[in-house]
């Protein structure tokens, strides 16, 4: 019998829009929903990054976990670094760096729009990750890049939630995105794509998925997908599992699904794929802006996570309710 040795991830999820509407708001950031409604211009600062708004639309997102537009454009020679710096120097004051790059002939408009959207959704995924600090908003001028292709808040939130589902379906281990990765060296390595091979070469027991994305000039979310697929295939594992304390909701999953498949079972095929065919919110936890539900991305977990304090939980619920007003 011929065995197809590839790692097939589960199907891409589609969010239930009726359920999202029933909740009344996007379910990611009530403050952002309100800012969109009042067509605010300025910058929303959250724990993992910033969202820049113009007239209530998101024009740019920046996170330390994701490579910026400049890094993406210059990493693979799409744009010469000098051209990028020159455009930033000359046009940042007028908030039209993007336009300047196109007008000066450095970059086709299509490539700028593609890369800009890719970078925006990429960073926004991390910015909108559950946070433990309250968001702040500063009214102010438009981002220096200018308005290349603004994205409605609703679309950004829905896509962010869908991306959490994408990762969760491939390998349900929310804690693994921010911690160092190591190779497993198990026999029976499945056939890997060139992208996966490039990622695998960077896995050294020290780098996290974010470090790998930055080193390769890849989109951070796409790298998370690569890493989770490699993990599901049993090729990559977290470097120091002893240090990792999954959040309370993830304990069961970490215990019965967090280990690579045993070597006598080829880690391929449909049966071994975790989460295949399960509903998007397979752990029975609804997506809420709640730090405990750190689905898809979790910030580096402290060595000794605090038990959930009822007072803190109450305060967080109060905060969320106030933000929703």
């Amino acid at each position: 019998m011929t065995v197809v040795r590839t790692t097939e991830p589960p199907r891409l999820p589609v969010r239930d829009k009726a359920a999202a509407r029933a909740r009344g708001w996007g379910g990611v950031s009530p403050m952002l929903t309100r800012l969109a409604a009042e067509r605010a211009t300025g910058v929303l600062v959250r724990e993992h990054g910033t969202l820049h708004l113009a007239e209530g639309l998101v024009v740019q997102a920046e996170s330390r976990h994701a490579p910026g537009l400049g890094a993406l454009l210059t990493a693979h020679g799409t744009l010469a670094p000098e051209a990028w710096h020159q455009a930033v120097n000359e046009a940042a004051d007028h908030h039209r760096v993007g336009r300047h790059l196109v007008d000066a002939g450095h970059l086709p408009l299509g490539a700028l729009e593609l890369c800009h959207l890719a970078a925006l959704y990429d960073a926004a995924y991390f910015v909108l990750a559950p946070s433990s600090t309250p968001p702040r908003f500063r009214y102010g001028p438009v981002h220096w890049l200018g308005s290349v292709r603004p994205v409605p808040v609703e679309a950004l939130e829905r896509e962010t939630l869908r991306r959490r589902d994408v990762l969760h379906r491939i390998w349900p281990h929310p804690g693994m995105d921010g911690i160092p990765l190591a190779r497993t060296h198990l026999p029976g390595t499945p056939a890997l794509t060139r992208r996966q091979l490039a990622v695998l070469e960077m896995v050294d027991g020290v780098r996290t998925a974010t470090d790998i994305a930055r080193a390769l000039g890849h989109l951070a979310f796409h790298t998370l997908v690569d890493v989770r697929r490699l993990t599901a295939a049993g090729v990559v594992t977290t470097a120091a599992p002893a240090r990792v304390q999954p959040p309370p909701g993830g304990t069961r999953i970490a215990s019965d699904r967090g280990q690579p498949p045993p070597p006598d079972q080829p880690p391929t095929g449909h049966a071994q794929l975790p989460g295949r065919g399960r509903p998007p919110q397979g752990r029975g936890q609804p997506h809420r802006p709640d730090p405990a539900g750190a689905d898809g991305y979790a910030p580096p977990v402290p060595a000794e996570p605090l038990p959930p304090d009822p007072h803190i939980t109450l305060l967080k619920r109060l905060r969320d309710a106030l933000e929703a007003l």
Partner: peptide, 10 residues
């Protein structure tokens, strides 16, 4: 498929 020099899969 759209070939792009940055890290896109479009």
């Amino acid at each position: 498929f759209v070939g792009s020099s940055f890290d896109g899969s479009v």
